[in-house]
């Protein structure tokens, strides 16, 4: 028995045998196990698609008059068919250096990892076009890179490309923490209408609606607090109008200015 030293995953091949009589030929490894009944002296033929998992196999021929072993490598098909593309994170603040990472595993049609070095391209693009590109050669079946998030909020496409195979992920670049919170107050029907100016991060991106702003009014020993979501860029609330009360606002770990309410003067 003289098997070829290696065959391509999923391809047809034959293993010549010598002698006479009947025998069984096994190809066994952790990735797959197949068997053929053979007439010794005739080659054992394996059609395309029979042995398709890349790996190292023991080939054994066993019969009444024969007991022989050999080794066989099944190598991945050279043509990439699918990409395992891990793009992380799916959402990150703007202006984060090396905040976006992409790792590509390249597979053939039988989901074997192609370990032969291949050039891979990773690119970030927004509505106006490509903003960052990296070309990396795979090593051990893997190519990876890191990229910066933009200063401007919005979604970007993160595309991995190997040959004519590509895979796309969407990355959401979101505003960072509020840069400053400025509040103002005005009397309204015997109460106090307190609202923020439009809230932005330090790159000028509007903080998204729904973000909580906590208003606190302190008067003597009393305190009124309310968590208000931003709507259309501002947070607005009606609070008790106590002359001499102090009103402040905060969002997360960012505090805003404080107002001393003097009764509208």
């Amino acid at each position: 028995m003289t098997p070829p030293p290696s065959v391509t995953a999923g391809s047809a091949f034959a293993i010549p045998t010598t002698g006479s009589g009947k025998a069984a030929l096994y190809i066994v490894g952790p990735a797959q196990a197949v068997r053929r009944d053979v007439d010794l002296g005739q080659p054992a033929s394996f059609a395309a698609g029979v042995l398709y998992n890349a790996g190292h196999y023991v080939v054994l021929l066993t019969g009444d008059s024969v007991a022989d072993t050999a080794e066989l490598d099944v190598v991945p098909a050279p043509q990439p068919e699918t990409l395992g593309f891990l793009a992380k994170p799916s959402r990150l603040p703007v202006g984060t250096p090396n905040g976006i990472s992409g790792a590509i595993y390249i597979f053939d049609a039988y989901h074997n990892l192609i370990t032969k070095p291949l050039p891979a391209t990773l690119e970030l693009s927004n509505a106006s076009g490509i903003v960052q590109t990296r070309t990396v050669t795979t090593l051990n079946g893997l190519a990876w890179t890191e990229m910066n998030s933009a200063e401007k909020e919005g979604t970007v496409k993160f595309v991995a490309r190997v040959g004519n195979i590509s895979s796309t992920r969407i990355i959401d670049q979101v505003p960072g923490d509020p840069c400053a919170i400025t509040i103002s107050a005005a009397p309204a029907n015997g109460k106090l209408l307190v609202q923020t100016a439009p809230v932005h991060d330090c790159s000028g991106n509007a903080i998204p609606d729904g973000t909580i702003v906590t208003f606190t009014e302190t008067y003597n020993n009393m305190q009124t607090t309310v968590d208000v979501p931003l709507k259309q860029g501002v947070a607005r609330v009606t609070m008790p109008a106590y002359k001499g009360s102090k009103i402040s606002a905060a969002s997360g770990v960012v505090a805003g200015n404080e107002i001393l309410w003097g009764g509208g003067q």
Binding site: D209, G210, N221, M222, Q223, T224, T225, V226, D227, V228, P229, K231, V237, M239, P240
Partner: peptide
């Protein structure tokens, strides 16, 4: 959902003895 917004009104800390925090909730 961002609603409902609940206002915590007239929150007052009452020192000991019998320390407590009292106030009112207003469903806006």
């Amino acid at each position: 959902s961002a609603d409902p917004v609940i206002e915590v009104l007239n929150q007052q800390y009452n020192a000991p003895p019998g320390a407590s925090l009292t106030g009112q909730l207003s469903n806006q």
